[in-house]
Write a protein that binds this DNA or RNA. Sequence first.
DNA 1: CCACCCGTTCCAGCCACTGGAACGACGGTG
DNA 2: CACCGTCGTTCCAGTGGCTGGAACGGGTGG
Lengths: 264, 264
Amino acid sequence: MERSMGREGPPPSILSKAFDLLNAFNAQERVMTLNELTSASGLPKSTVHRLLARLVELGAIEQHRSGYKIGLTMFRLGSMPPAVGMRDRAVPYLAALHRFTGQTVHFAVLRGFEVVYLEKLPSEHSASVLSGIGARLPASCTAVGKALLAHEAPEDLPDLLPCPLPRLTPSSIRDADELFAELTEVRTSGLAHEYEEAQPGLACIGAPIVVNEYAVAAVSASYRTNAPLPKGAESMLRQTAAAIASSVRSSLESGRQHWFPREM
Amino acid sequence: MERSMGREGPPPSILSKAFDLLNAFNAQERVMTLNELTSASGLPKSTVHRLLARLVELGAIEQHRSGYKIGLTMFRLGSMPPAVGMRDRAVPYLAALHRFTGQTVHFAVLRGFEVVYLEKLPSEHSASVLSGIGARLPASCTAVGKALLAHEAPEDLPDLLPCPLPRLTPSSIRDADELFAELTEVRTSGLAHEYEEAQPGLACIGAPIVVNEYAVAAVSASYRTNAPLPKGAESMLRQTAAAIASSVRSSLESGRQHWFPREM
DNA sequence: CCACCCGTTCCAGCCACTGGAACGACGGTG
DNA sequence: CACCGTCGTTCCAGTGGCTGGAACGGGTGG
């Protein structure tokens, strides 16, 4: 279908199809039927059926009265990335920040030029489904992303930046130099800001979690543009980030894990 | 290798090998090298190398300075099973129980004849690595397992029970009738007990989380056999289970999810 | 300098994978 | 009751992705 062009795509392996299928599940409808999966994944029905049977056998998918859902094998594997350990350490502090601000709190790491959300504590009235757990967003459009990019080695940045910066709203940064300017400001102030750059009507303050000179993750608190954050939010955010950083730092020293923080 | 016998195993697909590889990662050493994975998975080195390359491309595995670790794609998928939503609802109550008892708290669901641990809040001095998050244990050897089995339809039980009951210690139940007797007692008392049946020196009290006549999950608190639980532990356990049950129940009514609880 | 371990690459043969098409079971409709 | 649409399931011959032993190169240590 997309190989009609001269673009010689990589030969589709059964593995990539399997993950296409798994990725066809979305967080909203956690139980999907075969035909839904067929159209959502774009694979031939016959192939989907065969793959489902195999994946069920492996526990990656479970049958749910004539429907399918992600299985607990995926849950087991999904709790194994090193970053998850960091998330677990951070959660209590995130909860405190969440209680204090009453707004949506995010916790994310950087992968390439994207942020990946490891935790999200939603505010009461959160209709937003962007930025669910595990979701990826362009770093330049989010407060956590700016906080993380600001602490990357400046010489690495040009390699990371996609040539036309991806944008989620008209307010999203479009110019690389403008981004650089913001990043240096983030580095001095210790806080990153985002105003309707990811989603209209929403803004965000973010703080990096710095360990060994690197930002291993970032926290943020978002707020509606028509209802500002409580007064002490900024300092609370700083405290949260600092507390998580020292927790991570101590786990590096005492723990048996000898990897460097930047590779979470 | 295991096809030397007349046993005609199912033809090994690339998918099963991929999951063999993923399952070769264990929670302790979260970053593994190619040769470690080769021997841990039992696959030919060449195959492992090829699979790793593909899985890295898909984000299922990430490279970590000449090592490999589970990637965040797995994290994303691993947060999608419906049971995870239930876990998130339960965690605050589990934390309260954990604070009260000071001992290891478990939260698990039933899959076939095995329990799968969705959450584990370890006590201070927990050396035990059995029953990590996502791990599976024979239901008959654990308190959560007994609590869950007790609320299964009695006519389904014989199909679930493996013919020789799997045992983890000399104290593990070996007789099916003995198990049945215990289950009826669990049903009347509302609590399940386990004494050195999963691990020597450890015991457990478990309570089912009952919604719509079915046990959708179970909680347990474990304790050393030489240091009994605090006095109010049993009633606290009951309260915890009841609180989680009503939370789940309300999420079923208000929520958009219309599946039956037993299929978590 | 050699021995050893690790990760990487190569390649011809085979067989698992492919996906269009046909089938049978429901459930709603005229 | 006949008809139609939808869903899950099964079939099958062609083919190209998978296979894994073996050989290669780079690094470390003895």
